[in-house]
Each structure stands twice: as C-alpha cells, then as structure tokens.
Design a protein around this nucleic acid. Sequence first.
DNA 1: CGTATTTGACCGTC
DNA 2: GACGGTCAAATACG
Length: 360
Amino acid sequence: MDSGLSLSWEYKTLINELTQGMEKAKQLHFHLCSTTSPSETQYLLLQRILSSYQKALSILKGNGSTSARQAQAQFVAPMLGGPELSVSADESPRIEDFNKSSMRDHQECSPVKKRKFQTTRTEQVRVNSENGLDGPSDDGYTWRKYGQKDILGAKYPRSYYRCTYRLVQSCWATKQVQRSDEDPNVFEITYKGTHTCTQSTNAVLPPPSPDQKQEFQQSPQNHQQPQQKQYETLLSFKANLRVSTDNLDGDNNNNEMPAPFTFPSTYPENQDFHLGSSSSYCPSFVSTATSGTDNYFSPVNNYQSFVANQSNYQHFESDIAEIISAHASTNNSPIGGMEFPGDELNLDPNFLYNASGFYA
DNA sequence: CGTATTTGACCGTC
DNA sequence: GACGGTCAAATACG
C-alpha cells in the first residue's frame, strides 16, 4: 500500500534526520571540548541532547512489536554490561584493550585490577556558608562513606565514598574527598568511575537523600534518614539543587565549615569519551540539578528486602561480583555508548530485582 | 530496629 | 616495607 511506502519513507527520513542531528550534536560536543573548556551546564545540555537523539533512534530502530522491549534493553544495557567505549581518561584503556586483556584479569574480579581502568575526574570545590549545612549538599548522587585514611603529607584525612546504589544497581562510582592543605575551604573531589545508577535526573530512581552532611562533614553526625523519609525530603532537596559552577567561582570565601556542594558528578573526562562511539546514552550524566521532580520510583523495597544489614550487603557485594561479572561478560550490548565505571562489572538491574530470592 | 559511619585490619602495588 | 584503598565489625543515630 501507499501508506506502507510512505511510512517506510518517512521512517527512513526520520532516522536520517535524527542521525544527522546527533552527529551535529557530537560535532558540537567535540568542538566545544577541543576549543574551550565547557562548563558543566553545557556538558549537561549536550549530554541530554545526545541522549534524546539516542533514545529516539533506538526507539525507531527497534521497529515492530518488540520495539519497546528493544528500546528498553538498549537503554539499560549500556549501563549494565555493554562493551566498553573509548573511555579516555587518565589511565583508561580503550575498548580494544578491554577486550584483549582486561577481561581476563577481570575474571578474578580484583577490585584493584578493575580500578586500574576507572576513569577519574578531579574537581576542586570551594565551600562557603551560603551553601553550607543548610544548603543542598551533594552532587545529585547519594554516596556512602566506606573509609577514611590519613594521607602522607596531607593535613587532612581523605574520605572514600561509593555510590549508595552500588548493590542494587551495580553502580561502581566512587569518589574521594580530600581537604586542601592550603585552603581548608577547598576540597578536592576525585570521582572514579561513572554512575550507572539511575538515581538522578532522567532517572527513575530517587536520590533518597540530600545527604547534606555526608560530604565534608568534620563531625560524624551525618546519618542518613530512613529511606522513606529520604524520599519525603526529596522535593525540597531538589528544589534547592542547582548546578554548582557557582561554587567554583572563587568568590565564595566564607570560612565556615563544613559545607556541602552541588554539582553533577559524572562527566566524561574529555571529548574522547563518546564522540568516537556510535552511541552515548547515559542517563546518569545529568544531575538532579536539571532534572524534573516527577518520575521517581523507589528501589528501596528491593534494597531493604535483601540488605538486611551491612554485613549482608557487603557479603552480597563480594559474592555476587563473580556471578555478575560472568553474566556481564557474556552479555555484551550492541549499544555501549557510555563510560563505564571502569570495572566492567555492570549488570542488568532486572537481574538483581528479580533475584531477591537469590539473596533472601 | 534499620541504616550509615567509624576505624582498625587487611590487601595490592610500588 | 610504606602507602593508598577497601573491607567489615563495631558503633552511632533516628
């Protein structure tokens, strides 16, 4: 029928237009990164543009009755087990390297070995009273402190955080917070890996808590609210969120400490990150600062159901790592357009979600 | 009671 | 052996 032909033509044209749009966005991305140092806001916008193109293309290409499922799989897979892209941060190898060698190493799942391939990004953040304890504190992600260490030659200890959703969403992002020796108001935040969780923005998962005191707290009062309450405070939290390039302006010189800060925590290290890739969808790249306040659901039920206590949580982490890694290594996604946390230990959240019995 | 933090121990790397 | 990073039992908190 004519309608069929017309549809086919329109379909192809649509894909073509979307593809071109995405290419232009990538070029803009490249241009921006190669000529200037884009602000995080600019980065966010580009990420979203690319993400939107990617979504649209994926949906279109996932033609037929399985389109929705395919689209979903395509969006989920990159976060969970797709092939690594050209992560080009510090010591991060490109995908070829992963395929050739690191996957072998990965079988042993040594955290240290995995960490070798993590991308890192360091930011210096100046804190001030204005966005101190009363202000929005975090970067849109919820972190759980897992260690603190005195560093040789450093005046202040270094704190180690990992994503709260490490378990439930296999999000292996971590960060280190080091207070500056010279200026106690300045914190050096080193992000390692990338969030694969969906706790922010496009996200379907809630950032359960402002986590306001978690980051730079000097006194250990930073206890999390119960998850339900965290969700209740989400709206007010989000209302206060903003991209914190303000914090980097240098005009915030109040001495009051500690102070939280707000900025997106997951940016690719440089333009190599996904410009060279065929796709680059990453929902986690957008901070809550630019997100809406709507579409959230809570992973908390699952989380609480099998994370009865920290011991279980941690045992689960280590035990399941082997299983998951095997799962991930044999389940490469056709769409791998995003930066991974560096250790290819990405798993389908559905795997976990459906596996409560596994853990119970 | 559930969850997060603290902190000494442990491990891998250099 | 020193150091940095992580683990995990103990502890704190709401």
